[in-house]
Simulated assay, not measured.
Amino acid sequence: MNHGITRRAVLGQGACAAAMLAAPAAAQGAWPNRPVRIMVGFPAGGTTDILGRVAAQALQEELGQPFVVENRPGAGSNIAAQAVLRSAPDGYTLLLGSPGTNAINPHLYSNAGYDPLTDFLPISQIAEVPNLIAAHPGLGVRDVAGLIDLAKRRRLSYGETSIGGSTHLAAELFRLMAGIEATHVPYRGSAPMMTDLLPGRIDYGSDNLPSILPHVRSGALVGIGVTSANRWSAARDIPAIGETLPGYEVTAWFGLVAPRGTPPEVITRANTALRAGLGKAEHASRLMELGAAPIPGTPEEYQRRNEQQFARLGDLIRRVGIRAE
């Protein structure tokens, strides 16, 4: 009698233990079953924020749960990246990866607080955005060759919108490959730089294409060249700098990443949903309106790009001697 009771108790305990072990797997398989946060390391309204909101909307439509963008600006997105890294690796806190968090910041800051290649798991790229180098029309130059020729005859001044960011690196790579010296004037954002570039207080500047292109279209500035490897679909009339300086390329690429330890099934489900959502006409056209090219793909493709750019941009930062204050 006692033996039967003991046996039933043991079996009951075993069943409970099995159920407890199965519960996390079941819950994980149901991801997402509550709202998901996407941390963005820049203020609302900028290119990075808008891309994050497009991705959030696409994921929400595909997966049926709210995806909420939370802006956590500061230190080139390091604050947002560190917050995501400290969160539970359960798929409910993700990071909108930018060039800074993907590749640049560990070379720029003495302690960024993370290694982008090992501390985060790539989900998918979202979009790529080129920069554009534009000059004040008073310089009298219309293209890359003309700007280089003038810069070799007299010292010019140039601006960029983010120390160590892709606009800064685009300007520095241009200077190095062109073999010119020029006076660097740093700015914190597009608006402050335009305050000096539009009236000609500086000679040329580098900015994200969506921000600076309207000034080119209005005639207030001259588009010298886009920083993508080839001409950009949103501005086919503007040459790529690489047409004059072969091998030149500095673009901004954005994607979604999760903290290390996130289950692979969550990564796979998020990747599938994001690729499906960004493939829809309304989201693709929204990205194109921003001057961005949709580039969803596999986690492996995203990681390869991050690794390549980590090495390439890190080398450029060291050559130029850029450090964040």
Rank of each mutant, 00 (worst) to 15 (best):
H168A: 06
T118H: 14
Y109D: 12
P116Y: 01
A151C: 10
R153C: 07
R154S: 09
T93S: 15
L108I: 00
N111G: 08
R154E: 15
G159H: 01
A112E: 05
Q125I: 03
R142N: 14
A134V: 12
D119F: 06
G97R: 14
R142P: 03
Y92V: 11
L108Q: 01
A127R: 04
S110W: 13
D119P: 04
V129F: 08
L117D: 00
G164R: 03
Y114E: 04
L85H: 12
T167I: 01
T161N: 12
L176R: 15
Y92P: 07
P99T: 00
G140P: 05
I123L: 07
S124L: 10
P106Q: 01
A145G: 14
R142F: 07
S162C: 13
G146A: 13
N102R: 12
S98Q: 02
F120N: 05
Y109S: 12
G146P: 08
D115Q: 05
V141P: 05
A88H: 13
R175M: 13
I123F: 02
A134C: 12
P137W: 04
I104H: 02
H136L: 06
P137A: 03
P99F: 01
Q125Y: 11
D115R: 04
T101G: 10
A151V: 11
A135K: 05
G97S: 15
G97Q: 15
L132C: 10
A151L: 09
T167N: 06
D149P: 10
I133S: 00
V144P: 01
R142I: 05
S166T: 15
I163Y: 09
G159N: 01
F120D: 01
L117E: 03
I104V: 13
L169D: 01
D149H: 14
K152N: 12
R154G: 07
G138E: 12
L156Q: 04
G138P: 10
S98C: 10
G91A: 14
A135T: 07
G140I: 06
L150V: 09
V84Y: 06
V144L: 03
Q82M: 12
G138L: 04
I104F: 05
T93H: 14
L95E: 05
H168D: 06
F120W: 11
S162Y: 12
R153Y: 02
N102E: 08
K152V: 08
L132S: 09
P99G: 07
L173F: 03
Y109A: 12
G159S: 02
I148V: 13
N111E: 14
P99Q: 01
R175E: 12
S162M: 14
L147E: 05
L108R: 02
P89A: 14
T118F: 11
G146C: 11
G164L: 03
L169I: 04
G100K: 00
G97W: 08
A112V: 11
L121S: 13
G165K: 00
A127K: 08
L147W: 03
I123W: 02
Y92T: 12
E172D: 09
L139T: 09
Y158L: 06
S157D: 10
I104Q: 04
G91T: 11
N131D: 15
P106K: 02
T93K: 10
D119V: 07
S162D: 14
A145S: 15
L117T: 00
A88N: 13
F174M: 09
A171P: 08
L139F: 07
D119G: 06
A135D: 07
D119Y: 05
P99K: 00
K152L: 12
S162P: 09
A127C: 09
A145C: 09
